[in-house]
Design a protein around this nucleic acid. Structure first.
Length: 901
RNA sequence: GCCGGGAUGGCGGAAUAGGUAGACGCAACGGACUUAAAAUCCGUUGAGCAAUUUGCUCGUGCGGGUUCGAGUCCCGCUCUCGGUACCA
C-alpha cells in the first residue's frame, strides 16, 4: 500500500519551504537579473474563511511565480490582508468581539488555508492594513495629500508651500489676511480638504459612503441598507483634478478592455460648452452645460435641478407655492423613488423666463428632477427635438419643439439624436454636427455668451467614515474650528483601544452622526500644542485607503524611515509597475481607480517612479455552482440536496431529468457565483483532505481558461487526481518505494514527445493557458504508462515542468531522483529543435475544401511531389475523375486543397 | 435603453496567424485483471446514413455574405452573463 501519499508529501514540503525560506525574496537582490512582480488583490480576512473560488487567482499567480523563478527572474510575490473597514467591523459587531481580535483570528485562519495550498509567497513580507507600522504610512500619504495642491498649468500635484510662496508674490494682501482666511483659501486647493457636501448617509451603518459604495437601488453595497442624501461636513479627496490623466493613462496599460472602459465611463469625460442665459429681472446670467451647443437655436425651455440655488430668485410670486411643494417632494424622495418614477417626467414652471442668447427668444424656466444638481451646472437648456429626455418632458407639458438637425429620410421617431445637417439654425444651417458645434462655440466665445468646456461625471472622493475600525486621520481640530495636520514625526496616530467600538446606528436619517471615536478617552482625543487645545479628528478613513498603496509597501515592508526605499521601488516597480496583477473584476472601478489616483499623486511629488501602479491587470473568472431554493425561495445547503434517487445533487446536477429535494422537500435548481448567500460554497479544506492540494490546484486550473467563469463540478476532480496518481505509480515502485527512473538512453520517440511537450508547456505558461498545459502533461505521461522505468533524461524535465502546477509532488520526485536541493530555482527545460522535426508529416488532402484523405510525405518533400502524391491517392482520385482541376492549393505542413470545376 | 463579454458533444473545455472541429478530462458503455469489489489497464463514444472494410451527408446559437477553405473575418438577429443608467 503506497498509493500516492499526498498527505505526507504535502506536509513535508510545506514545512520544508517554510523552514528553508525557499521563497524569501532577499532584501537586496542581484539587480542585473530581470525582475517580475506578481501580485494578487489581497483578501478581506472574513470570518467564514475561503471557499474554492477565492484561491483561483492565487493559484494562478503562484504558478506564474514558480515558472518565472525557474526562468531566472527575481520574483516578488507577497501577500497581505485588507483588514480595516466595514466587513471586518460588521463581523466584530455581530459577534460582540473587538475587531482587533476577530481580525487577527480571521487572518490566522486564512493564513492556514493559504499555506495549505502550497502558495509560494514570501511570507516575511506579509502585512495587514491594520498593522500600526503599516497605517502609519497610510496616514503619511494622507498628509501628503493634505499638504499638496494641483497645479493645473503644470498638470501635476505640488507641495502646498509652493502655492503659498506664489500667493505671497501675486495675491494682493495675502500677508494681511488672517490665519483663518488664508487657510480657507488653501483648503480650496488642497488635495485633501473638508467640505460641506451632500453625502450618502447610511443611518443603519452609522456612516457616510462614497458614491461607489452605493448600489443602483440607492442602498449600501455592504449590508444593503437604505442610503439618504444629506449635507455634512466631511473630508474629501480631490480626485477630480486627475480626471483627464486617469482616463488618458489607461491607453498605456495592458488591462482588459472592459475594465478600461468601465473606468473611462466612471470618469465620464464629455466635451461641450457653457452657455450663459440672461434671466428676466435678475442680475447675472444662468449658466448651463451642454454637449450640443450646435442645437442652441432649438432650445425652447430651460430646466433647473430643484435644488438649484437660483430657484427662489427666479420663481415669480404666483408660482411660489407650486415650486415650493415640488422641491419639498423631491427632497423627500429617496433615490429609489426617483428611479421608479423615471418613466414619466415631472416638473413645474417657475414663472420665470430666460433669453436665448443666440436669437433673443424668451424661453420659460422650469424645475424638474430629471436634471441633477450634481452634474454640470445643475441647469440645462432643453432641446426636445434632439434629446429624448427633453422630448418626453416637452410632450408631458406641451412645450414647443423646433428641429435643428435634419433627420435622416424616413425617420419617424421623436427626438433625433443622429448626425445630420443643421436646419432652423441661422448661421449654422447646412453644417454637420461637428462643424456646427465648433462654429457655435466660436460664436459664443466671440460674443461673450459662453465657452467650450469639458465636464466629468467623476466627483471628488468622500473620504470620511463615522466608524471605529479604520485609520485615524492625522488631523487636529482647534476649538476655533481651525484644522492642523499632525507632524510627520508624530505619526502614527494609533487607534485608541475602546471597549465600545460600535457605530451609533439609527433608523432616523436626520440624527446627527456620532463617530465611535467621540467616545474615545480624553487622553487620546485631546492634544495640547503650544498651550492650544486640539481635538483629534474623530472620523476614520474608508476601507479603500489601506488598499490604495499596499503594493508599494511589499517592496520594503520593514522600512522605518520611508514607506519604501527608492532604489528598491525603482527596481521592483520599473518600468511599468506591477508586472502582473490578478483579481476579480468587481474592483474595476473602486480599488483600481483610487489606487491609480494615489499613485499619481505620489508620482507627482517624486515618491514613485512610474505613472501607473499596475502595468498588467488580469481578471480571473468566478467559480460558479448550482444552488437550490425551497418553496419559500430560501437557499438551502447544496451539499445536503439530493435527487429523486437519493444521489447527492453535487454528483448528478448537470444530468438531464433530475428533480431535487432538501430534507424531503422539493427544491428548485439555479446556478450562480459560489458564495455564502447561495449556500453553495465548497471549502478548499474538504478537497485538500480528500485529494490533496496538488489535486486542488490542478483541478482549479484545469476547469477552463483563467479569465472565464466556470462551474465547480466536484465529480470532475478525480480526473486530475488520477493523473497525479498515475505519475506517482510511474515514478515510484508501489511495493518497494524505489524510484523507477533509469539511466538508460531514451528512445527517439520519447525525446520527440518530451521536446514537443516542452514547447507546448512553455507557450502555455507564457500565455497563462494552464488548462492546456495540464493536458500536455497528461498526454506526456500517457506515453509512459506501459513502461517499467522512465529514462532520467526525460523524467527530469517532466518533473520540472510539473513543478509550478503540482509543486509538492514534483519536489518529492525530484528529491527521490537524487537531488538534494529544491527544484524551485532549477532552470526550466529548453526544447531542442532537432527533436521537433519529424521525418514524415501527415497532410490533409481536400477536394473543394472537403477532407477526402490524408497522406504521409517526407518532411522535405517538394510541392510538386506532394501534389502528385495527393492526386494519386485512391480516395482523392475518385473525385478528380471527369472534372478539370482549376486550382491547387498547398499550405506547407498543413494541407492540400484541389479545386475542381 | 446604452456599453461590453459569451454561446462548440450528455458535462467542463481544445482548436496560438482563415487550413483535419471536438485535444485533454468527466460521465456513459464494452472488455481485461480479480473469488469479488475497489484501484488499474485496454477499447468505444457529435448526429445520421450505409456497411466486411474503403465510405457518404449534416454539424461550432439563428439568417445571410466574403473565401479554394469560416468555430475563427464581415452584415443582420436571438439568447445569456456582466457593467451602467435621466450625466444634458
Amino acid at each position: 500500500m503506497s498509493d500516492y501519499p499526498f498527505q505526507s508529501i504535502e506536509q513535508k514540503w510545506q514545512s520544508f519551504w517554510e523552514t528553508q525560506k525557499t521563497f524569501r525574496t532577499p532584501e537586496n537582490v542581484d539587480t542585473s537579473k530581470p525582475k517580475y512582480y506578481v501580485l494578487d488583490m489581497f483578501p478581506y480576512p472574513s470570518g467564514i474563511g475561503l471557499h474554492v473560488g477565492h484561491p483561483l487567482g492565487y493559484i494562478a499567480t503562484d504558478i506564474v511565480s514558480r515558472y518565472k523563478r525557474m526562468k531566472g527572474f527575481n520574483v516578488l510575490h507577497p501577500m497581505g490582508f485588507d483588514a480595516f473597514g466595514l466587513p471586518a467591523e460588521q463581523f466584530a459587531v455581530e459577534h460582540g468581539v473587538h475587531p482587533r481580535v476577530t481580525t487577527e483570528n480571521n487572518i490566522d485562519n486564512m493564513l492556514r488555508q493559504l499555506k495549505a495550498i502550497g502558495l509560494s509567497y514570501d511570507w516575511d513580507r506579509k502585512l495587514a492594513t491594520t498593522d500600526v507600522d503599516y497605517y502609519k504610512w497610510t496616514q503619511w500619504i494622507f498628509l501628503k495629500l493634505f499638504n499638496s495642491y494641483y497645479d493645473s498649468d503644470l498638470d501635476k500635484a505640488r507641495p502646498i508651500e509652493e502655492l503659498v510662496t506664489q500667493f505671497e508674490g501675486t495675491h494682493a494682501g495675502w500677508s494681511n489676511l488672517s490665519e483663518t482666511d488664508r487657510e480657507a483659501i488653501l483648503a480650496e486647493h488642497r488635495l485633501a480638504y473638508l467640505a460641506e457636501v451632500p453625502v450618502n448617509w447610511c443611518p443603519q451603518l452609522g456612516t457616510v459612503l462614497a458614491n461607489e459604495e452605493v448600489t443602483n437601488e440607492g442602498r449600501s453595497e455592504r449590508g444593503n441598507y437604505p442610503v439618504f442624501r444629506r449635507p455634512l461636513k466631511q473630508w474629501m479627496l480631490r480626485i477630480t483634478s486627475y480626471s483627464d490623466r486617469l482616463a488618458d493613462d489607461l491607453d498605456g496599460v495592458d488591462w482588459p478592455e472592459p475594465v478600461k472602459m468601465m473606468q473611462r465611463n466612471w470618469v465620464g469625460r464629455s466635451e461641450g460648452a457653457h452657455v450663459d442665459f440672461p434671466v428676466n429681472g435678475l442680475e447675472g446670467k444662468l449658466r448651463v452645460f451642454t454637449t450640443r451647443p450646435d442645437t442652441l437655436f432649438g432650445a425652447t425651455y430651460m430646466v433647473l435641478a430643484p435644488e438649484h440655488e437660483w430657484v427662489d430668485a427666479i420663481t415669480t410670486p404666483e408660482y411660489q407655492a407650486e415650486v415650493k411643494a415640488y422641491r419639498k417632494a423631491t427632497s423627500e424622495k429617496t433615490d429609489i423613488d426617483r428611479m421608479s418614477d423615471s418613466k414619466t417626467k415631472s416638473g413645474v414652471f417657475t414663472g420665470g423666463y430666460a433669453t436665448n442668447p443666440v436669437n433673443g427668444t424668451q424661453i420659460p424656466i422650469w424645475i424638474a428632477d430629471y436634471v441633477l444638481a450634481g452634474y454640470g451646472t445643475g441647469a440645462i437648456m432643453a432641446v426636445p427635438a434632439q434629446d429624448e429626455r427633453d422630448w418626453a418632458f416637452a410632450e408631458v407639458y406641451d412645450l414647443p419643439i423646433i428641429r435643428t438637425v435634419q433627420p435622416t429620410e424616413g425617420f419617424d421617431g421623436k427626438a433625433f439624436t443622429g448626425d445630420g445637417l443643421a436646419i432652423n439654425s441661422g448661421f449654422l444651417n447646412g453644417l454637420a454636427i461637428k462643424e456646427a458645434k465648433a462654429k457655435m462655440i466660436e460664436w459664443l466665445e466671440a460674443e461673450g455668451h459662453g465657452q467650450g468646456t469639458i465636464n466629468y461625471k467623476l466627483r471628488d472622493w468622500l473620504f470620511s467614515r463615522q466608524r471605529y475600525w479604520g485609520e485615524p486621520f492625522p488631523i487636529l481640530r482647534g476649538e476655533d474650528g481651525s484644522v492642523r495636520a499632525v507632524e510627520e514625526k508624530d505619526l502614527p496616530v494609533a487607534l485608541p483601544p475602546m471597549e465600545d467600538f460600535r457605530p451609533t446606528a439609527t433608523d432616523d436619517p436626520n440624527a446627527p452622526p456620532r463617530p465611535p471615536l467621540s467616545r474615545a478617552p480624553e487622553e487620546w482625543r485631546i492634544v495640547e500644542i503650544d498651550g492650544k487645545r486640539y481635538e483629534r479628528e474623530l472620523n476614520t478613513m474608508p476601507q479603500w485607503a489601506g488598499s490604495c498603496w499596499y503594493y508599494l509597501r511589499f517592496i520594503d515592508n520593514k522600512n522605518e524611515v520611508s514607506f519604501a526605499q527608492s532604489e528598491k521601488e525603482n527596481y521592483w516597480m520599473g518600468p511599468n509597475g506591477v508586472d502582473l496583477y490578478i483579481g476579480g473584476v468587481e474592483h474595476a472601478v473602486l480599488h483600481l481607480l483610487y489606487a491609480r489616483f494615489w499613485h499619481k499623486v505620489l508620482f507627482d511629488l517624486g515618491y514613485v517612479s512610474t505613472i501607473e501602479p499596475f502595468g498588467r491587470l488580469f481578471n480571473q473568472g468566478y467559480i460558479q455552482a448550482y444552488a437550490y431554493r425551497d418553496e419559500r425561495g430560501i437557499a438551502v445547503e447544496a451539499t445536503e440536496t439530493v435527487d429523486q434517487d437519493g444521489k447527492p445533487a453535487m454528483e448528478v446536477q448537470d444530468q438531464p431529468g433530475r428533480k431535487f429535494f432538501y430534507k424531503g422537500q422539493p427544491v428548485t435548481q439555479e446556478y450562480g457565483k459560489m458564495g455564502k448567500s447561495l449556500k453553495n460554497a465548497v471549502s478548499p479544506d474538504e478537497v485538500n483532505e480528500k485529494y490533496g492540494c496538488d489535486t486542488l490546484r490542478l483541478y482549479e486550473m484545469y476547469m477552463g481558461p483563467l479569465e472565464a467563469s466556470k462551474p465547480w463540478n466536484t465529480r470532475d476532480i478525480v480526473g486530475v487526481n488520477r493523473f497525479l496518481r498515475r505519475v506517482w505509480r510511474n515514478f515510484v515502485d508501489e511495493e518497494s518505494g524505489a524510484i523507477l527512473v533509469s539511466d538508460s538512453e531514451p528512445t527517439d520517440a520519447q525525446l520527440r514527445i518530451l521536446h514537443k511537450t516542452i514547447v507546448r508547456m512553455t507557450t502555455d505558461m507564457e500565455r497563462m493557458s494552464f488548462n492546456t498545459a495540464i493536458a500536455a502533461l497528461i498526454e506526456f505521461i500517457a506515453e509512459f504508462v506501459a513502461e517499467d522505468t522512465i529514462p532520467r533524461a526525460v523524467a527530469e524535465p517532466f518533473v520540472l515542468m510539473l513543478a509550478p502546477l503540482a509543486p509538492h509532488l514534483a519536489e518529492e520526485l525530484w528529491q527521490r531522483m537524487g537531488h538534494s536541493e529544491s527544484l524551485a530555482y532549477a532552470p526550466w527545460p529548453v526544447a531542442e529543435e532537432k527533436w521537433l522535426v519529424e521525418d514524415t508529416i501527415k497532410l490533409v488532402v481536400q477536394v473543394n475544401g472537403k477532407v477526402r484523405s490524408t497522406i504521409n510525405v517526407p518532411t522535405d518533400a517538394s510541392k510538386e511531389a506532394i501534389l502528385e502524391a495527393s492526386k494519386s491517392d485512391e480516395n482523392v482520385a475518385r473525385y478528380l475523375e471527369g472534372v478539370s482541376i482549376q486550382r491547387e492549393i498547398y499550405v506547407p505542413g498543413r494541407l492540400v486543397n484541389i479545386v475542381v470545376g
